[in-house]
Structure formats: structure tokens, C-alpha cells
Design a binder for these strands. Structure first.
Length: 290
DNA sequence: AGTTGTCAAGCTAGT
DNA sequence: ACTAGCTTGACAACT
């Protein structure tokens, strides 16, 4: 089992997600920003290696506006060496990597332009992992998308659109249960038809489920990952007290986490702690497990 | 130096 | 009708 946190280390004084306003876009600005992001990503991975946090989610903002029409710069070639180097480091030290395109990516949208933009954005994520030379265990996770008042039709549209995706995307794309629309059961149905691996989100499952226990949910989802895909990925968070349902906690609730770990005995997976204080909670969780 | 409004993009539920 | 929440964070223009 590898433990990790998403996108950003809060104590390093740098971010791998620097960006700029679209209005200040220029090739110079891209070169400068992406280089800083890559440097910080390397620094973050160094920290993670030293601290035994071997699961990491690379943020979508690594190359700002990469899939936007204004973007007319061959970043893949310009930064080839840097991406290769980071990829080598990742492979040498046996990191597990994921990426998570944001909420604007909707594969089953009714509007064809939204679908088109979504695919372009997913493709950018896959390009990052491809440039690093990572194998198929490095994944890009998305939610199913919108319901549009008709879930069966929307699921059907998801599967249809999924089937049309390129090989490069299909080998990396995985789906995740969300907290108000598509439950684990919905994801499992989609898996039956499209064979997409499922990232199990513990917190979302707590918000929206059909009565499956944690143990059964982990068993079901772990079976959706083939040897090529690697170990099941699990996202973990807990409810922020006195906030709207679905908002993530500031810091890990160790009682809740221990409870989850005891329920998961016998199943192997990599776990991502989606908690606001990032590496701090990941370190606490690591201490509790090992 | 610190504060605040705003940022490419979508969807849903709660107010 | 509007906003919070989602992986929310980070820029840029202002005090």
C-alpha cells in the first residue's frame, strides 16, 4: 500500500500549479511558468520520497491552458527532457501517479462542444504521463458527468462516448464514484459494459451509496483493476464539521481513518488523502498504518 | 506587504 | 435567482 496526497505540498514554499491569467498569455510566460512548476514538482517528489509518501496526484495546472485554443506552443518538445527526467525519477523510486481533470470535464455532456473540449483536456493529462514515460498504472481519473434528468440515457451516452476515445486515453482513464450523482453501483454497471477500472472514493461512498459495506465496496472495485492497471486506487477524506455535506475536512480524523483501515483488512490498494492540510494528514495516516 | 476580487471551462442541491 | 462545493488555489490589481 502506498499513501499520498493531491497536487500540492503546503510546506515547501512553492507550487507545481502556478498559472497566469489568460489575458497575460504569452509563450515566454508559458516557458517560465511550466519550468517553475516542473522544478517544484521535482522538489515535491523529493519530499515525498524522503517521507515515504509514494502515491502522488500531479495537478492539472502543470501546463496552464494546455488544452485551450490560444495555446499554440509545442510544450511537449520544449520540455521533453524535463518530463523525461521526472519520469525516470518516478520510475526509479517506484512512485504511483494519478491525475484528476477538474469538474469541467464531462464526457457525457449533451453539448457536443463540451464533450470535445473534455476529450482535449483528458488528452493533455495523458500526454503529461506519456511524456514522463510512465506505464499504464499511472491513471487519469474522472467522474461520470451530468445526469440531465435521465440517468440511464446519460450512462448510455457515457459508454458510447468512452468507446470512441483513443487508445492513448483508454489505457489511462478510470472512473470514480461521486457524492451526489453516480454511486458505486452506477460505476460498477458502467464497468460491466466498458471495462473501465473504478477508483473507490470512500467519502463519496459515505455520502451516496446503496448499502454496500466498505469491505464489499473495496472487493468489488479492486476486481475492476487488471494487472496492467496496477493496484486499486482509493481516495479518502472525511466530512468537514458543520459544513455542507460533501465538503472535505481540514485535517484527518484519525478515529475515522483507523476505522476505515480496520474494515479494509485483507485488501491491498494505494490510498490518496484528499484533506486540506495535504502532506500533514498523509504523514499522520502513514504513521498509523506502518 | 497585505488584502481582495476574480479567474476558461459544468453540474447539482441547497438557500 | 444565486451560490457553495467540487482537487480549490493562485493571480493581479488594489490598499
Amino acid at each position: 500500500m502506498k499513501i499520498g496526497y493531491p497536487c500540492l505540498n503546503s510546506g515547501l514554499g512553492c507550487t507545481p500549479n502556478r498559472t497566469f491569467r489568460l489575458s497575460s498569455y504569452s509563450i515566454e510566460r508559458v516557458k517560465e511558468t511550466v519550468q517553475q512548476n516542473l522544478d517544484c514538482l521535482q522538489k515535491t517528489l523529493d519530499f515525498n520520497l524522503k517521507n515515504g509518501l509514494l502515491f502522488f496526484r500531479i495537478g492539472s495546472g502543470l501546463v496552464p491552458f494546455a488544452s485551450h485554443p490560444v495555446f499554440k506552443f509545442d510544450w511537449q518538445n520544449y520540455f521533453k527532457k524535463q518530463f523525461q527526467d521526472i519520469g525516470e525519477y518516478i520510475k526509479k523510486n517506484n512512485f504511483r501517479i494519478s491525475m484528476h481533470p477538474d469538474q469541467f470535464v464531462v464526457i457525457n455532456a449533451l453539448d457536443k462542444d463540451i464533450v470535445k473540449r473534455s476529450i482535449k483536456e483528458i488528452d493533455y493529462h495523458c500526454q503529461v504521463l506519456d511524456l514522463m514515460g510512465l506505464c499504464q498504472t499511472a491513471k487519469v481519473q474522472i467522474h461520470i458527468g451530468g445526469v440531465y434528468g435521465n440517468k440511464p440515457e446519460s450512462i448510455k451516452r457515457f459508454i458510447q462516448n468512452y468507446k470512441k476515445l483513443s487508445k492513448r486515453i483508454k489505457k489511462r482513464l478510470v472512473i470514480e464514484n461521486d457524492h451526489l450523482k453516480y454511486s458505486l453501483r452506477d460505476c460498477l454497471r458502467i464497468h460491466q459494459q466498458a471495462k473501465i477500472p473504478i477508483v473507490f472514493d470512500v467519502f463519496h461512498h459515505y455520502c451516496l451509496n446503496n448499502g454496500e459495506s466498505i469491505k464489499r465496496a473495496l472487493l468489488f472495485t479492486s476486481k475492476t483493476w487488471t494487472k496492467k492497471d496496477g493496484l486499486l486506487m482509493v481516495d479518502y477524506s472525511s466530512q468537514k464539521k458543520d459544513a455542507l455535506k460533501g465538503s472535505h475536512a481540514e485535517s484527518i480524523d484519525m478515529k475515522d481513518f483507523k476505522n476505515f483501515i480496520s474494515k479494509s483488512k485483507g485488501i491491498n490498494f494505494d490510498i490518496m488523502l484528499e484533506i486540506k492540510d495535504k502532506e500533514k494528514s498523509a504523514l499522520k495516516a502513514k504513521k498509523c498504518i506502518f
